[in-house]
Nucleic acid binder design. Structure first.
Lengths: 249, 249
DNA sequence: AACGCATGTTTCGTATCCAATTTGAGCCAA
DNA sequence: TTGGCTCAAATTGGATACGAAACATGCGTT
């Protein structure tokens, strides 16, 4: 079985006990954000979180600092913390980065894959095609791709890729429910082609297919630009720069 | 002008006043590590750091947590913090990642470059060729590359690239002083070729040259593997256990 | 020599207090 | 009404003190 990571299915299994309060809080907040329970742009107060997890403010502060490094939270000094609001330009930037990184991870992974791993990938792709629920679809999509990189043995690379999947989670959710399972046949076709190339151990072919898969998604995402919630509001950095105001929920 | 981000030039300018004690401490520790003052593998105690910066332990704890996310320190629960010891495999992994990312940054940057920017790059390359001091060489090399990406307008990408330059700083230093300025003509030749391609606005050419530049360095690095300080002492992870994967905690 | 236990040190978390900054409301003036 | 100003409330950032848990070490016994 071997689940992918402890940060992977944050809500599924509750097997991530680090015995460190800070880690528990960090993963808890991360799960809340990824699940959409704390929507982007919403303010998150330290005391509120501390009360929710029944801890003091210190582990919350540490957790928020860590999540800021992960790009999920934005801190403004002496003011508060907000769930990061990723604008479309940033999202497209991330897709361009993924376009370079994930084919590398896949190419490095394929030579190390067992046949069982490939069977798992095929099963995940089929389940995804059969899924009707948006959340299930998102989860399976994520599992499919991350599982296809798991044998690369490149820890740093995998961590980065997972980070990108996290920060663009909201976009994928909005996009998926927007297109409403009608254009999913494209994704399914691409996934099946990738699995087929992997089974043939056609490393370059699989990498190219993956590149196009990500690239197509990016272009499609850019096309629906105006449909996305992009109310000005430039996301702010710690340094503040010129204050903007208007955060709110 | 236009610093890249808060993680930008930790040692170059001493203009990192965030009025936040945590930020000051974070950048201070980062500078100490990058300068080699705190060597990899050395233990760093909270109280010692707190005393050195004349602050309490709280900002130190937050700073260490942040630097851990940046991959510069390693925390072991209830035990302490160590300066991250990057083994050769990780270093090579990073070079493979850079091989994908930095050509993208360069390609995106070239169309936005002013002629003045290109002049600056040429000047940096020349200064580097004329440099005799290792530290100066390292600094100019870093400035050259980062300046060539600065016009890409991709904040996240730049932050990642800079992070990689930080975590492999020790290797570059060791490698540079090891080869002792005798093989530097290769680097200089590559840099001049890159600048020339940029001036011709030959985006693809420049990107390819950069790819090879990084790739050659990686191969050379791998060749000198046994020469590097890799004294057993496996760097330990928080969870300690096997199979951690991702998140580089 | 190997094992187990006791001790000391450091971190991690809590609780409380205080300073600094932001922010929002209210008020006044043009 | 709109713009700008002052002031007060709320929240964060940090310090200090204290307790508990975990790790590391050394000693003594078998």
């Amino acid at each position: 079985m071997e689940t992918i990571d402890r940060t992977a299915s944050a809500e599924a299994t509750s097997a991530h006990e680090s015995s460190l309060v800070t880690d528990r809080v960090t993963e808890g907040i991360r799960a809340l954000i990824l699940a959409g329970e704390l929507p982007p742009g919403s303010r998150i107060g330290q005391e509120e979180l501390a009360a929710r997890f029944s801890v003091s403010r210190i582990p919350v502060r540490v957790a928020l600092g860590r999540l800021e490094s992960d790009g999920l939270v934005v801190l403004k000094p002496s003011s508060g913390a907000w769930v990061a609001r990723v604008d479309l330009a940033e999202c497209l930037e991330i897709y361009m980065i993924r376009e370079r990184l994930e084919p590398l991870a896949l190419a490095q992974s394929i030579p190390n894959m067992t046949d069982e791993r490939i069977d798992l990938l095929e099963r995940l792709a089929d389940d995804m095609a059969a899924s009707t629920d948006t959340e299930t679809f998102l989860k399976l999509d994520r599992m499919f791709h991350l599982a296809s990189y798991a044998d690369a043995g490149m820890k740093q690379l995998l961590a980065m890729i997972e980070r990108f999947w996290n920060t663009t989670q909201h976009y994928r959710r909005a996009f998926t429910s927007l297109l409403g399972h009608e254009r999913n046949w494209i994704i399914h076709a691409e996934h099946r082609l990738i699995v087929d190339a992997i089974r043939r151990r056609d490393t370059e072919g699989a990498a190219h297919l993956l590149t196009e898969h990500i690239r197509r998604t990016r272009c499609e995402l850019a096309q629906y630009a105006d449909l996305f919630p992009n109310p000005g509001s430039p996301r702010k950095n710690r340094k503040g720069g010129l204050s903007d105001s208007s955060n709110a929920r």
